[in-house]
C-alpha cells in the first residue's frame, strides 16, 4: 500500500487503497466507490470531515497513540453507502474525541468501532449519531470500549438522535479494567504477568483491526 501525505484542505478518493498521514488540522475528504484508508498519523487537533457519496464503501483503520489529542470526525452518509470506522488507541494525558455521524439518506450502513487503552491518561468520547426523519433502511452501530485502570478517567457520551422509525441503531459502551479471567488463562499457559497483559492489550486493539 502506498503512503501519501495530506497537507491541503480538500481531497477526493475514488477506488483507492492508501496509507495516509494527515498534517493539516482541518481537512475535507470526499469518498467515491470503494476506498480503504489506513491512517497512521494525524495532528493532535484534527477535524476530519468525510462525505460518502451514494453507493460508496469506505473502511478506515486507525491505530495510533493519543497524547493531548482533541479530534473530531464528522461523517456524512450517502445513499446506499457503507462506512466502517475502526479506531484503536492508547491514550496519554488529556484527550477528547468526537465522532459525529449524519444519516440523512436511505439504505446506508455505519459501523463505528472504538477501542481505547488508558495509559496514564484521560479521555472523553462523544459519539453522536443523527438519523434524520423520513429516512429508511439504515443500519447504525456505535461500539465503544475502553480498557482502563481507573474508570473515573473515562467519559463516554453516546448521543443517538434517532428520528426515523425505520432504522436499526445500536450503541454499546463498555469501560472496564483488564479481564482477570483472561489474565488467569494466559498465565496458566506459562506467560508472565507482564507478557499476558501485553497480549491482552494487543488483542483488544487488534480485535477491531486486521479484519
Amino acid at each position: 500500500m502506498n503512503k501519501i501525505v495530506l497537507e491541503q484542505d480538500e481531497y477526493k478518493f475514488q477506488d483507492e487503497k492508501k496509507e495516509i498521514w494527515i498534517t493539516t488540522p482541518k481537512i475535507n475528504i470526499d469518498i467515491c466507490n470503494e476506498v480503504y484508508l489506513k491512517i497512521t498519523k494525524i495532528p493532535a487537533n484534527l477535524t476530519l470531515n468525510l462525505q460518502l457519496e451514494a453507493n460508496s464503501r469506505l473502511q478506515i483503520d486507525m491505530e495510533l497513540d493519543f497524547d493531548n489529542n482533541q479530534n473530531t470526525f464528522n461523517f456524512i452518509s450517502g445513499e446506499n453507502s457503507y462506512l466502517e470506522f475502526n479506531l484503536a488507541t492508547v491514550f496519554h494525558n488529556e484527550n477528547s474525541l468526537v465522532i459525529n455521524n449524519q444519516v440523512n439518506v436511505n439504505n446506508s450502513i455505519t459501523n463505528i468501532h472504538f477501542r481505547g487503552i488508558e495509559d496514564g491518561g484521560k479521555i472523553k468520547v462523544l459519539a453522536v449519531g443523527k438519523i434524520y426523519p423520513e429516512t429508511k433502511d439504515n443500519k447504525y452501530l456505535e461500539d465503544i470500549r475502553v480498557m482502563t485502570k481507573d474508570n473515573s478517567l473515562v467519559t463516554i457520551m453516546p448521543d443517538l438522535l434517532v428520528e426515523s422509525n425505520l432504522v436499526e441503531a445500536n450503541h454499546n459502551a463498555v469501560i472496564s479494567p483488564v479481564n482477570q479471567d483472561y489474565m488467569f488463562y494466559l498465565r496458566s499457559k506459562g506467560l508472565t504477568y507482564d507478557k499476558a497483559l501485553e497480549l491482552i492489550k494487543k488483542g483488544f486493539l487488534n480485535s477491531i483491526l486486521k479484519k
Binding site: Y182, Y185, L186, K189, L191, L199, I200, K202, G203, F204, L205, N206, S207
Partner: peptide, 10 residues
C-alpha cells in the same frame, strides 16, 4: 481471547 492468536501466545 479475541485478537490473540494461538501461534502468538505459544
Amino acid at each position: 481471547i479475541e485478537g490473540v492468536t494461538n501461534a502468538e501466545m505459544l
